[in-house]
Structures are given as C-alpha cells and as structure tokens.
Simulated assay, not measured.
Amino acid sequence: MQQCALIDLTALPRIGFRGTHSADYLRVRGFELPEAPNRAVLQADGSQVARLSQTEYLLLGGLADQGQRIADEEVSWELDHNANYLLPRQDSHAWLQLSGACISEVMAKLCGVDLRPEAFPVGAVAQTSAARINVIVINLGPIDLPRFQLLCDRASLAYFKAAVLDAMSEFNGALLEPEALRH
C-alpha cells in the first residue's frame, strides 16, 4: 500500500518578490499574505504565497490554472520607483511535492529539523538543509492530506529527487506524474 507520493512540479510557474514595497505590491494584485516570515498562505485559486523574510515572498502557481496567474505576474511586472524587485525562480528553484501520512518520517531521514505536525503546523515554512543541500519546505496541508512543497536548487533536482525517493522506499512511496493531482 502506498503511504506517500512524490510529484515533480518543476514545470509549474513560480516567482519571487523582494523589497520594502513588495507586500503592498502583492496586496494590490489580490494576494493574501502571511503575517510573518517563515509562514505560507494558500490562495483561493490554489496558488501559494510563502513569506521567506520581512520583505521577500515566493509565489507558487496553482494546478487549476496551470500556474497562469503566477506566470502573468512575472510578465506584467515593471520596475518603478518603489522598492519591489522581481526574482525569477523558474530557472533557479526546482519544486517537488511530497504527500501522504508519513511525510514527516520521510523528511526525518533527510533533514534535522522537526517537521512533525505538532512542531511544523500547516502554514509553516522552513529554510533548511535536507540531503546536504539547501531546501525550502512549506507545509500547506491540510491536516487530513499532509503535503510538503519542497524547493531546491534546480541543478540539484535529480540528486534531491533520488534522495527523497530513497527515503520514501521503506514507506512504499511512489513517484507520480503531476496529472495525478488533477483527479
């Protein structure tokens, strides 16, 4: 019986914004923002916003529109007099989703941070090391369907994916295609 699944979402759009006016810019664009750094909020359209620091945000595309909202944000952004800078993340960060009841146990094999639900609740973000590389782990649950968004350096995707799959092996984990999320 499959207890966890890994899906490569690297093809979906993602971008970042940094600067003292980034929050204002994103609110005007209709995004709900996390109140504090290292927190994330799921948007009504399925996209996600993670706050990585006081003035840096990471936006992940939703499946319903294949990330079109986020792709449109990247295309429409223009440099102006406000401190709000676009950070292209499509080429810099790979994106995996780990889901299932045992995801905390899988990640415990790769990462020293306690990612159990009582220590890492829905909405939490950890910028840490897993399998000896830098990763961003985002818990956007919900509790009845545990799932972590895992972002790493794109050049490390094959290595990190193999490490996660190896950690999943004792839990009968499986690599699924993104289409599995649309059912």
Score class of each variant (00 low, 15 high):
2 Q>K: 11
5 A>V: 07
7 I>Y: 01
7 I>M: 10
7 I>F: 05
9 L>I: 07
9 L>R: 05
12 L>F: 03
12 L>Y: 01
13 P>K: 04
13 P>T: 02
13 P>F: 03
14 R>K: 15
16 G>W: 10
17 F>V: 11
19 G>N: 09
22 S>M: 13
23 A>V: 10
24 D>L: 09
24 D>T: 13
24 D>F: 03
27 R>M: 11
28 V>W: 03
29 R>C: 09
30 G>P: 02
32 E>V: 14
33 L>W: 07
37 P>V: 05
38 N>D: 12
40 A>C: 13
41 V>K: 11
42 L>N: 12
43 Q>M: 15
45 D>Q: 09
47 S>V: 00
48 Q>M: 15
48 Q>S: 13
51 R>I: 11
52 L>E: 03
54 Q>L: 13
55 T>N: 13
55 T>R: 07
57 Y>S: 14
57 Y>R: 13
58 L>E: 08
59 L>V: 14
62 G>S: 09
65 D>E: 06
71 A>E: 04
74 E>G: 12
77 W>N: 07
77 W>V: 07
77 W>Q: 08
78 E>I: 06
80 D>T: 10
82 N>F: 14
83 A>N: 13
88 P>N: 12
89 R>W: 05
92 S>D: 03
93 H>V: 05
94 A>K: 00
95 W>C: 01
95 W>N: 05
98 L>D: 00
98 L>I: 01
100 G>D: 00
100 G>N: 01
100 G>Y: 01
101 A>W: 06
102 C>L: 15
103 I>M: 03
103 I>W: 00
106 V>E: 05
108 A>Q: 08
109 K>G: 07
110 L>S: 00
113 V>E: 04
118 E>C: 10
119 A>V: 09
120 F>W: 06
120 F>V: 03
121 P>I: 10
122 V>H: 01
123 G>V: 07
124 A>D: 07
124 A>Y: 02
126 A>D: 03
126 A>F: 01
128 T>N: 06
128 T>A: 03
129 S>P: 03
130 A>N: 04
131 A>N: 05
132 R>N: 08
133 I>Q: 06
133 I>D: 02
134 N>F: 09
135 V>R: 01
135 V>L: 11
136 I>R: 08
136 I>D: 09
136 I>C: 14
137 V>M: 08
138 I>C: 10
140 L>V: 15
141 G>Y: 04
145 L>R: 14
149 Q>H: 15
149 Q>F: 05
150 L>M: 14
151 L>G: 10
152 C>W: 00
152 C>N: 09
156 S>N: 13
157 L>T: 05
158 A>K: 07
160 F>C: 01
162 A>M: 11
163 A>V: 00
164 V>E: 01
167 A>I: 02
167 A>L: 00
169 S>G: 04
171 F>I: 09
171 F>L: 11
172 N>T: 14
173 G>Q: 02
173 G>C: 09
174 A>C: 12
175 L>N: 04
176 L>T: 06
178 P>Q: 02
179 E>L: 14
179 E>K: 13
181 L>E: 06
182 R>I: 10
183 H>P: 06
183 H>F: 14
